[in-house]
Amino acid sequence: MPEPWITDPALCRRAGIPQGTEFKTKPRQPMATPARAFAANVPFSRVTADEAYRQVKYLRLWLEAHDAAHVLVTWVNDTQVTPGGHEARADESITGLPARSRRRLSVGAGATYSWRAWT
């Protein structure tokens, strides 16, 4: 729903949107479930997100701030926090890893993307 709708009470009533509902962008919506899990100390193993979130750096930073394991698509020149707590470009942060710890995986037949896994 476009943001202007949420600020118009008449449109919200006609659409069945409860009063007081706040606008959230698509990347902010999936943050709600892990946030509830963090607050309730519910364990989970990881958060994953598809390519729609690849340019949403704040989602990755938020997950890193909560020390949540995650798999998100990123650009090679995006900065990220390394395990040592330093900020580095994504491609530079893996430079020191031994070749045996990297492998390229296909995301499916005919897919235009592939990804690399590091262990």
Rank of each mutant, 00 (worst) to 15 (best):
L97I: 10
P2K: 06
L11W: 05
Y113K: 03
T79K: 01
H86A: 14
W62D: 10
P9G: 03
P30S: 07
H66K: 02
R46F: 11
P27W: 05
R89E: 07
C12F: 03
V56L: 11
R13I: 14
H86C: 12
F44H: 10
L61E: 15
A35F: 11
A117S: 14
T119N: 08
W118K: 06
T7A: 14
S114L: 14
V71A: 11
R60L: 03
L61K: 12
R36P: 11
A10I: 01
D78S: 08
S114E: 05
E87G: 14
T79E: 12
V107D: 15
G108M: 05
L97S: 13
R103A: 06
E92L: 08
H70K: 00
P18N: 03
I6S: 11
A35H: 13
L61Q: 15
S106F: 09
E22Y: 13
R14W: 04
V47Q: 08
D78V: 09
P98Y: 04
I17F: 01
T119D: 13
G85M: 00
A69W: 06
T79I: 02
T25E: 06
A32G: 07
W115M: 08
R103T: 08
K57P: 07
V71W: 15
A49G: 03
I6E: 03
S45D: 12
R104H: 12
S93T: 10
P34S: 05
T33R: 12
D67E: 04
T48C: 12
E87H: 12
I6H: 11
N77Q: 11
A49R: 04
V81W: 05
A49E: 01
D78L: 04
L97E: 04
V107E: 15
A65Y: 05
Q55R: 15
A117G: 13
